[in-house]
């Protein structure tokens, strides 16, 4: 089990997250929800070991993940929010780089890469450098790189960004299948419909603090609201929506 205990992160005077605690269990997809600046990405980066918390702990099966970061990272797969890749490498070259850094066997690696590229529909572009890939194609490369080593924990930050409808449908099924395989999946997204379809439980963040944490069904029942969208609107309380909409129209016409 992956546990986050009283996680706090300060950037100078700015408090990105404060006293965040939750657990992600094997066999479930935990959704991280929140508006921009709510602390989702900071939480995800701490979970991946790319950022150290100011205080608090990340536990895996009771042990502090940062005590042996290398061993912890070996169990992780991560799709970052921004598709930062080595743009002068081709898709297979990038996947080979990741696979070798993960010290996968060469023969198995080549076979895996070929299968991933074919299944994700980018086999025909295997000789193109990533600079010429569309955002969706880059996202597919990131997803393949994240699961290349069959990780125990998969952390996905806006994984379907830029994907076409059919690819998104396939990958939604893939995310659920990962959980069915007994993996721990953390899924951070803005897209509420996707979170509702994919996640078993959700953690809703606002201004770096948890404002809701339960299964989607329980949250709906507790707040007596029909959908996750309504739950989110109620908890995050986006204020003056109509006023801001009219303001945007006025700015456009000016």
């Amino acid at each position: 089990m992956l546990g986050v205990h009283r996680l706090t992160k300060h950037y100078g005077a700015l408090v990105a997250i404060h006293d965040v605690s939750f657990e992600a269990r094997p066999g479930e997809v935990l959704g991280l929800l929140g508006p921009n600046g709510s602390g989702k990405s900071t939480t995800v980066k701490i979970l991946t070991g790319l950022l150290r918390p100011t205080s608090g702990e990340v536990h895996l099966d009771g042990a502090d993940a940062f005590d042996d970061l290398e061993a912890y990272k070996a169990l992780l797969g991560y799709v970052p929010e921004e598709p930062h890749l080595y743009t002068y490498l081709t898709g297979p070259e990038y996947l080979r780089l990741v696979g070798r850094l993960r010290q996968l066997r060469e023969a198995a690696l080549d076979d895996k890469i070929e299968r991933f590229l074919q299944l994700l529909g980018i086999w025909d572009d295997r000789y193109q450098t990533l600079s010429s890939y569309s955002k969706g194609m880059r996202q597919k490369i990131l997803i393949a790189a994240a699961v290349l080593h069959n990780p125990r924990i998969v952390i996905l930050d806006e994984p379907f960004s830029g994907l076409d409808v059919s690819a998104a449908r396939v990958l939604k099924g893939f995310v659920r299948a990962l959980a069915d395989e007994g993996k721990i999946v953390v899924f951070s997204s803005h897209v509420l419909e996707v979170v509702e379809q994919v996640c078993s439980r959700v953690v809703i963040l606002k201004d770096g603090r948890i404002v809701g944490h339960d299964s989607v069904a329980n949250l709906r029942a507790t707040l007596q609201l029909p959908s996750l969208d309504a739950v989110f609107a109620s908890l995050v309380a986006e204020e003056r929506v109509e006023e801001r909409t009219l303001g945007l129209l006025a700015a456009m016409r000016a």
């Binding site: 070991g49 930062h84 780089l97």
Partner: peptide, 16 residues
């Protein structure tokens, strides 16, 4: 540096 933001690839996937 070359494609510096992509250096997370080494930080995340490689041993320290």
């Amino acid at each position: 540096p070359s494609d510096l933001p992509a250096s997370w690839t080494f930080r995340f996937n490689g041993p320290l």
